[in-house]
């Protein structure tokens, strides 16, 4: 037995929310304005992507592509490369905001 033994299994996501996992503070001057800039930009980008996805899924269904075709879709290396490039750009943009 050890200190992590628990009578019932807790989901990993719940374990992450354990109040004992206190997030240390590293940034001495948090500059909330920069943080808000970055968060709002992210929220905006997520909203844009959600709207765009909704259009794609609605169009696909209109044209007879079933909804589970999305889940079973296999990305080609070209598509993966395009996604990687977008993610990298997003990471750079957010970090640049926080600098």
């Amino acid at each position: 037995m050890n200190k992590f033994d628990a009578p019932e299994r807790e989901s990993v996501v719940l374990r992450m929310q354990d109040p004992k996992r206190v997030r240390p503070k590293f940034v001495r001057e948090p500059d909330m304005d920069k943080v808000i800039d970055a968060l709002l930009r992210l929220a905006m980008e997520i909203s844009v992507i959600r709207d765009r996805l909704d259009i794609h899924e609605a169009l696909a269904e209109l044209h007879g592509i079933p909804a589970d075709a999305i889940e079973s879709f296999e990305a080609t290396p070209q598509i993966e490369a395009r996604r990687r490039e977008r993610r990298d750009r997003l990471v750079r943009g957010v970090i640049a905001d926080l600098r």
Partner: peptide, 19 residues
């Protein structure tokens, strides 16, 4: 300081998204 904060966040996100 930003690096510390971002690395810490990225590790939390690693466990959360894998979890």
């Amino acid at each position: 300081q930003l690096w510390c904060s971002a690395v810490y966040s990225s590790q939390d996100l690693l466990w959360e998204t894998t979890g």
